[in-house]
């Protein structure tokens, strides 16, 4: 990607480290340096958009001009368990197996 004139380095190494942690990526020092530069350039490129005056523009929730797509609450066949598990690196025939998860569930 060509460097932009206004591509001030807007990201710090700490920013990139944090994003890498959230994405569960382990980066070497060299990767961290190059990614900090590259990501800064991308952010710089995108930030050109902020030069536009958007006062009279409605926020866009979706690029398609379509709304209210629903399905009825009717059951459809599920996969067979064997098929559902087929692509998993490890399973026991019933469940997906993953390295131990301790503590409470992370979600909802």
């Amino acid at each position: 990607m060509p460097a932009q004139d206004n591509a001030e380095p807007t990201l710090t190494r700490e920013d990139v480290l944090k994003v890498a942690m959230l994405a569960r990526l382990a980066l070497s020092d060299a990767e961290l340096s190059s990614l900090t530069d590259e990501l800064s350039q991308i952010v710089g490129l995108v930030s050109q958009l902020s030069e536009l005056n958007t006062d009279d523009v409605e926020p866009l929730a979706h690029p398609l001009d379509s709304q209210n797509v629903f399905r009825e609450d009717n059951p459809a066949p599920s996969l067979k368990t064997a098929d559902a598990l087929r692509c998993a690196p490890r399973h026991d025939g019933e469940c997906f197996l993953v390295p131990a998860v301790l503590g409470e569930s992370g979600s909802a």
């Binding site: 019933e94 469940c95 997906f96 197996l97 390295p99 131990a100 998860v101």
Partner: peptide
């Protein structure tokens, strides 16, 4: 075992 089992 060292594994956790996942039911989706």
């Amino acid at each position: 075992t060292a594994d956790s089992r996942i039911d989706l």
